[in-house]
Every structure is written in C-alpha cells, then in structure tokens.
Computed example of a mutant assay.
Amino acid sequence: MSNDHSSASYIHMVQHLIEKCLIYKMTKEECMEALSKHANIKPVITATG
C-alpha cells in the first residue's frame, strides 16, 4: 500500500511541474529538458503522446 501512495505522490508532483511549464508557455521539449535537468525526471516519464 505504501508503494501505491509513493507512486501517486510522484505522479502528482510531475503533473504539478508540467503545469508550471504550461504557465510559462514552454514547449513540450523545453518542459522535458527542464524537468530532466532541474528535477531529475527522466524524459521518458514526461514524453507522453
């Protein structure tokens, strides 16, 4: 159960960071690069269709 909570928390954090990128009108590629560089989130996580 704890693993489900940590997964949901991670997803929520990534969603929040992507929303921040949208506020700054960043492109998908810019967002992927920024999250990779500053939040250590692999591009495969943010590279959805």
Rank of each mutant, 00 (worst) to 15 (best):
Met1Asp: 02
Asp4Cys: 12
His5Ala: 14
Ser6Lys: 11
Ser7Pro: 00
Ala8Arg: 14
Ser9Lys: 07
Tyr10Asn: 12
Tyr10Pro: 00
Tyr10Ser: 10
Ile11Trp: 10
His12Ser: 15
His12Leu: 10
Met13Phe: 06
Val14Trp: 03
Val14Lys: 02
Gln15Lys: 04
Gln15Cys: 04
His16Asp: 09
His16Glu: 02
His16Met: 06
Ile18Ser: 00
Ile18Asp: 00
Ile18Pro: 00
Ile18Asn: 07
Ile18Ala: 07
Cys21Gly: 04
Cys21Asn: 04
Cys21Thr: 00
Ile23Asn: 02
Ile23Ala: 09
Tyr24Pro: 01
Tyr24Asp: 13
Lys25Ser: 07
Lys25Pro: 00
Met26Pro: 09
Met26Glu: 12
Met26Ile: 08
Thr27Gly: 03
Thr27Leu: 03
Lys28Glu: 00
Lys28Met: 03
Glu30Trp: 13
Glu30Phe: 01
Cys31Thr: 09
Cys31Gly: 02
Met32Tyr: 08
Met32Ile: 15
Glu33Leu: 12
Glu33Gly: 03
Ala34Ser: 15
Leu35Thr: 07
His38Trp: 14
Ala39Val: 06
Ala39Leu: 00
Asn40Arg: 14
Lys42Ile: 02
Pro43Leu: 07
Val44Trp: 07
Val44Pro: 04
Thr46Phe: 05
Ala47Glu: 15
Ala47Met: 11
Ala47Asn: 15
Ala47Gln: 11
Thr48Met: 07
Thr48Ser: 04
Gly49Gln: 05
